[in-house]
Design a binder for these strands. Structure first.
Lengths: 148, 148
DNA sequence: GTGGATGCAAACGATTTGCAAGCAT
DNA sequence: ATGCTTGCAAATCGTTTGCATCCAC
């Protein structure tokens, strides 16, 4: 918990920015949130703690977190951008349930290996990649099976 | 070339829609376009042939093409949606050059196989998936190497 | 002639930005 | 005090939609 605050404070002073109340509270709420939050959702949760924080500030602050290495932007299928923690969070890909919205993370070194191979064959230098599978999670499969 | 028109006409009559001049010309330009077009780009090209076609109609028509099975929507990293041909075009994934915007397609059955395995392990039913690698293509690698 | 299609402009949702006021340093 | 930050509202971008008109059937 303290580690992330340190990272943020470091980044902030390194860039002659200011450590404000808003940044503090947004960081807290962000860290307390599991998984992949949208700006809207975070602003929602935030409003229970500190209702005066504006949406614009949440946008600005999440972008700051990305630059500081605390968060990572992810754009899934449709709609809004989501942010996930990036401290102590190694690379992974996602299974996304199109019914309930659940996001399952996974890692697969074999796939990564094959990706590198494909890139090499195309004389392509990979900087980042994304692998997402969309479909139904176990729970939703059960539900749709029982309703039929 | 004729095949796609047939598919469109079929879809249109099956759904008691109308085969208009606009749909005809948009289809032609779309088919004559390689790779992954954005609506804006298509509208641009279109304006050289038939300047009166509105952006809104291009949007509406590309969505129609998707429903008819002629095109497929793809949302890459940022910005706008792109559309690719889907007739005689089997499943594939993409390498996207972040410098010049080039998009290279590839297929890799081994990766698909491993993906299926991951899904299974998570008791997840995959409906669709996407794999994209972002980086520098061969040409842009050369350029950046020579400029340094 | 009738209902679907079009062009236009307005509406949209997500995100960004300009600006005057506010607060951390 | 200085200047980075904030909240607000307006602006932006890509896309969709309402509506009067138009055209394929």
């Amino acid at each position: 918990m303290i580690k992330e605050r340190k990272i943020l404070q470091d980044y902030i002073s390194r860039n002659s920015m200011k450590y404000t109340k808003q940044r503090e509270v947004i960081l807290e709420v962000f860290l307390a949130t599991e998984g992949h939050v949208s700006v809207e959702e975070l602003h929602q949760k935030l409003s229970e703690v500190e209702p005066s924080v504006s949406l614009a500030t949440v946008y600005r602050t999440l972008n700051l977190f990305c630059k500081a290495g605390l968060a990572q932007k992810r754009k899934f299928g449709e709609g809004q951008t989501r942010y996930e923690h990036s401290v102590d969070h190694s690379h992974h890909d996602h299974l996304i349930c199109t019914s309930c919205g659940k996001i399952i993370e996974f890692e697969n070194p074999m796939i990564e290996q094959l990706q590198r191979q494909v890139a090499e064959r195309n004389d392509f230098l990979v900087k980042s990649h994304r692998l997402e599978m969309y479909g139904l999670c176990a729970d939703c499969r059960k539900k749709s099976a029982s309703s039929s």
